[in-house]
Amino acid sequence: MSGLLKTAAARVAPALRANMITQRATLYTRPAKEKIGTLETVIGLGMFSLAILGPSGWILAHLEEYKKKE
């Protein structure tokens, strides 16, 4: 029985691999075309911080209200 499985696997495996899509990463090694300013950096970091810390801060600020709910 194992010989039958090996034969079937040997014939089916290349057919299955032929239809696979090859994915390639797009990497650029050159410097950026435009410099990012200080204000843009500060705004970007502020928005990321707000997006990550905002919801947890909201929950911690309203923790007592969440405890009272039954």
Rank of each mutant, 00 (worst) to 15 (best):
P14W: 05
I36Y: 02
H62K: 07
G44W: 00
V12D: 06
E65C: 02
L60I: 09
W58P: 00
K35R: 12
G37L: 01
R11D: 12
M1I: 04
E40V: 03
K33E: 14
L60W: 06
K35G: 03
L53I: 06
R17W: 04
A32Y: 03
S49P: 02
A13E: 09
V12R: 06
E34D: 09
Y66S: 07
K35N: 08
I21M: 07
A32G: 02
V12S: 09
V42C: 01
L60A: 10
A32I: 02
V12M: 07
I59T: 04
M20V: 14
L50K: 05
T26W: 11
T22S: 11
G54C: 02
G37P: 00
G37F: 01
L4Q: 13
A51M: 13
M1G: 14
A61I: 04
T29D: 11
A15V: 15
T26G: 10
V12W: 06
P55Y: 02
Y66Q: 04
I36L: 03
I43D: 04
L63E: 07
A61D: 06
A8P: 03
M20N: 12
L45Y: 13
L53W: 09
S49E: 08
K35C: 06
A13C: 10
G37V: 01
L53T: 05
L60S: 07
Y66R: 01
G44R: 00
L60P: 00
T7C: 12
E40F: 04
V42M: 04
K6F: 15
G57Y: 12
V42D: 02
V12Y: 08
P14C: 06
A9I: 13
R30W: 03
R11E: 15
G46A: 06
K67A: 10
P31W: 01
I59W: 02
R24N: 11
V12H: 03
W58L: 07
A32K: 04
V42Y: 00
T7N: 12
L27T: 07
A51N: 03
G37R: 00
G46N: 02
A32Q: 08
N19K: 08
P31L: 01
L39K: 08
T41D: 03
L4A: 12
L60F: 09
L5R: 12
F48W: 09
V42G: 00
T41S: 08
L5Y: 10
K69L: 14
R17T: 11
K67T: 01
K35I: 10
G57D: 05
L27A: 08
A10T: 11
T41W: 07
L63F: 08
M47I: 15
T38Q: 14
G37W: 02
K6Y: 14
T22E: 11
K69A: 10
P14S: 03
E65V: 01
R17E: 13
L4E: 15
K69D: 10
I52H: 06
P14A: 05
P55N: 02
L50Q: 04
L39G: 03
A13H: 01
A8M: 12
E70V: 14
R30L: 08
S56A: 15
G46E: 01
A25K: 12
I43K: 11
